[in-house]
Every structure is written in structure tokens, then in C-alpha cells.
Computed example of a mutant assay.
Amino acid sequence: MSQEFNSEKAPEPVGLYPHARKVGDLLFLSGVGPRERNTKKIPGVTLGENGEIVAYDIEEQCRSVFKNVRLILEASGSSWDKLVDVTVFLTNMKDDFATYNKIYAEYFADNQPCRTTVEINCLPTPIAIELKCVATL
């Protein structure tokens, strides 16, 4: 038996999936990026005329992603301190890892879930970071 959750504050999913799904005592979050709800604005991203990324600020994107994860956790009956596993997708490990790792350490100083960080070629929207999380309820 499972239950789906969607946050009224986090950005809308870009496909046919919920923000999170509860299975037993675990909460599985779909991929979460830095977009803002009800807008095309992506914090930390400057787009060109053709929608291509002209510039981005990985620190601003990290903070926005972490905010969105927190919103989904809270809407689903969990919380930041109950995260147990985080998978991070970066589109530019070479240039962004140090900044991302510094911001990550700020947000996870008290709770240190398991973590995997991988570099990928691109994400479905013009963003540089996405998180996939598992939490307890």
C-alpha cells in the first residue's frame, strides 16, 4: 500500500509523477530541482533568447533545491532531519562540486544522510542540480 503526496508550495512536477510517495515508513521523493512554483523562473539561472543557459549560480540553485526538498518533506509528513539517503545530480562536477559540497555541509550539519553525487550530461529543464531523496516518516 502506498500513498502519493504533492506540495502546494514546491514547484510543479515536469511530468506525470507525484512529489513523493509513502511506502511503509519510508518516503521517496521524485527528483527535485531549484525551479519556483507557478513561474518559469529558476533561481540562479540566466537564459538566453533561445532558452539556453547563458550563466548560472550553483550556490543559489543549491539553496533553492534544498528549500524545495524541505517543502515537499513537510507537505508529506516528514522533515529535514528524517532524510536518510540523498542522490545528487550535477551537470558540472568539475566546476560546481566544491561550492555544492560547502552548501551541503551547511544544510546537513546536524543530520548526515547517506549521499551519492554523480555528474550527468543534462537535466530535463535548464538546471545544474537535482536531488533524489529518501526519508523516514
Rank of each mutant, 00 (worst) to 15 (best):
S2F: 15
E4Y: 14
E4L: 11
S7K: 01
E12I: 08
P13K: 10
P13R: 07
P13C: 14
L16Y: 10
Y17A: 08
Y17N: 02
Y17E: 11
Y17I: 02
A20S: 10
V23H: 13
L27I: 12
F28G: 00
L29V: 08
G33D: 13
G33I: 14
R35S: 15
R35D: 14
N38I: 05
T39F: 02
I42E: 07
G48V: 09
E49L: 11
N50L: 10
I53G: 02
V54R: 14
A55C: 06
A55I: 05
E59C: 02
E60T: 12
E60N: 12
C62N: 04
C62I: 00
K67D: 11
K67F: 08
N68K: 09
N68P: 03
V69Y: 09
V69W: 08
L71G: 02
I72K: 09
L73R: 09
E74S: 05
A75E: 06
A75H: 08
A75T: 03
G77A: 09
G77E: 05
G77H: 07
S79P: 02
D85M: 05
V86K: 00
V86S: 01
T91A: 08
M93I: 08
D95R: 13
A98Q: 11
A98H: 05
T99N: 03
N101W: 15
K102D: 15
A105D: 15
A105W: 06
Y107S: 01
A109N: 09
D110M: 10
N111Q: 13
N111Y: 13
T116A: 06
T116Y: 05
T116N: 10
N121F: 11
C122A: 13
L123Y: 01
P124Y: 12
T125I: 12
T125G: 04
T125S: 10
T125L: 07
I127N: 00
A128I: 02
L131G: 00
V134R: 03
V134M: 08
A135K: 06
T136M: 10
T136K: 09
